[in-house]
Design a protein around this nucleic acid. Structure first.
Lengths: 340, 340
DNA sequence: TTGAAAGCGATACCAC
DNA sequence: GTGGTATCGCTTTCAA
């Protein structure tokens, strides 16, 4: 800032009182007369006084600021969580730094370093995965929402769905609707490498449990070069063109599902009739598609709620009451699983 | 933070040097021997030392932080800009606070107050509109990207498209493709009240210029209760059900356009053949729709680029060389304007 | 090449 | 009710 902002000293001088009194008035700490209050408040307003947060933080060694690290705010699922978390924090009097890591470890650790330096009071990871540990000698609470990887701090809480169970339920939905050969499309999961392994686990578990032989040609994994939507389209197209047949697709993400649906339509396949498709996240993509895509609702509002409860608990100095919080999921059937 | 972090004093003591020297070494300011450098760096690393940003900012009265205010990061168009701006700032050594205002003036001014208090070095508005002025006695540079409203600070720069020209071009595209009766759907513009007036202006201008009588029944404006997509669907449906006919729709936003397309399809109308539709923003919505939606590309990357050039200029203490930067737009024709 | 010390702005303790 | 002042952690000037 070029022009030097007015400080508490300026206000004190103009009001003819001490800085202690100004501070007391402005923070409503009591110990001042009504007359003093009015005077100080008026002058502060007139001068456009804004407390210097750096000084305050330095003095109180607390910034009332939390960092939110997420791979990509432009992803609907993540941004919904980010918004919910940010809103909840604001209610509790905290500001948020929102940081886009793009799942790039280097970028992430540069953020972490900067954030610690900025004395954030807490860290929230949303989505993606992380290897980086917090080495610095600080005791900062960390909450993970739909995020894998530990930071190694003393107090951390994990909030998310039971991912193996979730993909198990997706797979079960298709088989119960009569599918015989179900493919797995796991592109988007990989793009952000969100618990890739966990997300696919339920698919394998279901097959094994029901003695269905795994056909590896039906496991569609991308090179993660394109966005998940485009990549899913390519993968499904080449799978079809290679002559492999399937009558159901478990898509790990709605964007992936949308790509799958588009590719199937392009090949003249009636989605929801010839081939059933189920996505996950219950994002806007599943709702705007034609046909509408069956999906799994992951209760992001509840995730955010639980996560912030835990975080605020820890910010208050407490130890978390639970360290692993599992949030329910719910299969939402729409047009792509109407059945044969 | 519960545990007190290690300070520069701790490092100085352990290294047997003064804080001045530690500071010089860690900031590579010169004036130290190679041996001292190694010693100090080793100890700092061992102790997990992280400089206290609050102290640093207080001392330097600069936070190397910029605030980005946007109505809603979950909007594709805005989030693309946010990401671009944030990336560019990071390259220049700045961190960003991302703030979601939801276009709520109260929320916005509470943010502004907090941000000034946090001594942000600059402010970037992305999208939406604002009445709130920055009253505090500070001289902080402000950049507006696709945002209307001035803050009243001394140094501010506006970056965006020529919106009247843009909607003029949208309207022209439809008429030139043979449309006779073109409707205007302006829901989303209003949801975020983005330069609503400017955005619609070109539509009116085109009609007037070509002596086409305005039919107010074809101006679809929503009550802004629902998301733009849903609302657009409702509006188009009731317009059709009321018996008004049109053969083209200028939709101020791709989400709006998608709602329009969905409603038309639901009424058995062949989009791109019976009725032409054009959206704007060139967002993912226009690309994933069937049929794909013609739209206007607004060159967000260039907006971000120009805006950051201007901001960094001002952060460097200079006066902006230009205060109103207009970025080109480009009509992208897809399936919804194939023609009759 | 190094160090002592002032000062950034706000808070809070303690004396009055 | 009010005010003087030490303090938070860091940078920077000036002297050694």
């Amino acid at each position: 800032m070029a022009k030097r902002a007015v400080s508490i000293y300026d206000i004190a001088k103009l009001a003819g009182v001490s800085t202690a009194t100004v501070s007391n008035v402005l923070n409503q700490k009591g110990n001042y007369s009504e007359k003093t209050r009015e005077l100080v408040e008026r002058i502060a307003r007139e001068q456009g006084y804004v407390a210097n947060f750096a000084a305050k933080s330095l003095r109180e060694s607390s910034t009332k600021t939390v960092a939110i690290l997420t791979p990509d705010v432009s992803n609907d699922f993540f941004s919904t969580l980010v918004l919910a978390v940010e809103g909840r924090l604001r209610e509790a009097g905290y500001s948020s730094y929102i940081c886009n890591t793009a799942n790039d470890p280097e970028r992430e650790s540069s953020y972490i370093y900067g954030l610690l330096s900025k004395q954030v009071d807490g860290i929230v990871y949303i989505g993606g995965t992380t290897q980086s540990r917090i080495e610095a000698n600080v005791d900062i609470p960390v909450v993970h929402i739909d995020h894998t990887g530990t930071t190694g701090v003393a107090r951390e809480v994990f909030v998310g769905n039971d991912l193996p169970r979730l993909s198990y339920d997706m797979t079960a939905t298709l088989f119960e609707r009569g599918c015989k050969r179900v493919a797995l499309a796991s592109v988007s999961a990989s793009l952000y490498r969100t618990a890739e392994h966990d997300q696919a686990a339920g698919y394998y578990a279901y097959l094994e449990e029901h003695n269905i032989v795994l056909d590896k040609n039906l496991v569609l994994e991308g090179p993660h070069k394109e966005t998940s939507l485009i990549e899913a389209e390519h993968l499904v197209s080449s799978c079809l063109e290679d002559g492999y047949s399937f009558d159901g697709v478990v898509a790990l993400g709605d964007r992936v599902a949308l790509g799958v649906v588009n590719a199937l339509k392009a090949h003249g396949i009636a989605v929801g009739k010839d081939v059933l498709v189920i996505g996950m996240d219950d994002s806007i993509y599943s709702r705007i598609s034609t046909p509408t895509i069956s999906t799994v609702r992951r209760h992001t509002a509840q995730m955010a709620e639980e996560a912030m409860r835990a975080l605020l608990e820890m910010l208050g100095g407490a130890k978390p009451s639970e360290t692993h919080i599992v949030v329910d999921h719910e299969v939402i059937e729409r047009e792509t699983t109407l059945g044969f």
